[in-house]
Design a protein around this nucleic acid. Structure first.
Length: 302
DNA sequence: TAGTTAGAGGTATAGACCTC
DNA sequence: GAGGTCTATACCTCTAACTA
């Protein structure tokens, strides 16, 4: 449970705004301590985060966003027998959502797709939604595109949709200026950035100031950026093993100019590095657990 | 077109109460 | 006891609708 101060810090909303949303629209009903102080649950936090995203990113009025949230919750409640109401079994729900979302996206129906994702975010932790729905969705889109069952236009549309969702969350987390700065990018030629996005979101949630450059980043200017912005960690993602040689050359050039920057390497290509390779110690895994271990080992120690 | 009004939404303040 | 949080209320800004 969270008190008002923690909610204000996490979301950047004022305490007055929180109370106004509660009393005017009834969208959240925090429990109270014996003394009457509000205590917010994880669900309250998720709801508030969703409302903030709807109002600030989409420009929807708070009244309408609140109505939509209440409607979404009511629809979900209706779908289940009242006597046995509980949050749907996540695994089955995520698979179902992924299938429905895929169908809407290949049909270029952004409205239905957004509504479906909004509903998911109002019910589950955003980590679960990204890991269980959006990331597998992107993997599936990549496979379908390679098989030729969807067009390049569909692939681009879906990628753009998912990236927008990442970007919305990215802005919501407050930066802790006492924590190290991070530069995140994919070397030139690398187009797949979902893993990098996810890791950047993980870091941003921890309060790190992440400068996200994204896919297909040229070498020019990177070293200067690291020096000017006092970057401590350089995160690189590379999925295509065929581009590993070029990727290593990319890293070598940067390391030559700024040897003090600490490397964080992720993606299928780097995961294939042999144990004896000099860069092997900088490769992190693909699971949240391995990221958390890296964070505790490399960031908390600083 | 410009002024007025009303509503929506956010913020500030005061005083009382609660927590640590 | 200091600092945080509460409720209630007033005030501010912005926008849209209305009117002369």
């Amino acid at each position: 449970m969270y008190n008002s101060k923690m909610i204000v810090k996490q979301l950047g909303l004022s305490a007055g705004t929180l109370r106004a949303w509660e009393t005017r629209y009834g969208v959240i009903q925090p429990v109270r301590t014996e003394g009457g102080h509000r205590l917010y649950s994880d669900e309250d936090l998720a709801d508030l985060r969703w409302l903030k995203m709807e109002t600030e990113d989409k420009g929807i009025s708070i009244r309408h966003a609140a109505q939509q949230l209440i409607k979404n919750k009511a629809l979900q409640a209706e779908a289940l027998p009242l006597s046995s109401y509980k949050t749907p079994e996540p695994k089955a729900y995520f698979i179902d959502m992924q299938n429905n979302l895929y169908a809407h996206l290949v049909d270029f129906d952004a409205g239905k797709s957004n509504a479906l994702v909004d509903l998911g975010f109002s019910m589950y932790q955003f980590d679960d939604m990204f890991h269980e729905v959006l990331v597998p969705l992107m993997a599936r889109v990549g496979d379908e595109w390679e098989r030729g069952t969807i067009t390049a236009v569909q692939e681009h549309f879906i990628s753009h949709f998912v990236q927008l969702r990442f970007a919305q969350f990215f802005r919501l987390f407050q930066v802790d200026s006492t924590k190290p700065k991070v530069l995140a990018l994919c070397p030139s030629g690398e187009q797949h950035q979902v893993g990098l996005l996810l890791f950047s979101l993980f870091l941003r949630r921890k309060g790190l100031d992440v400068i996200y450059i994204g896919a297909d980043t040229p070498l020019e200017g990177i070293s200067q950026l690291i020096l000017v912005k006092d970057i401590q960690f350089l995160c690189l993602s590379l999925t295509n093993p065929k581009r590993l040689k070029a990727g290593l050359s990319f890293i070598g050039s940067i390391h030559k100019e700024v040897p003090e920057v600490e490397l964080v390497l992720g993606g299928k290509a780097f995961n294939g590095l042999p144990k004896g390779h000099s860069l092997y110690p900088y490769v992190i895994g693909q699971s949240m657990e391995s990221w958390e271990m890296w964070y505790q080992r490399e960031v908390i120690k600083t």
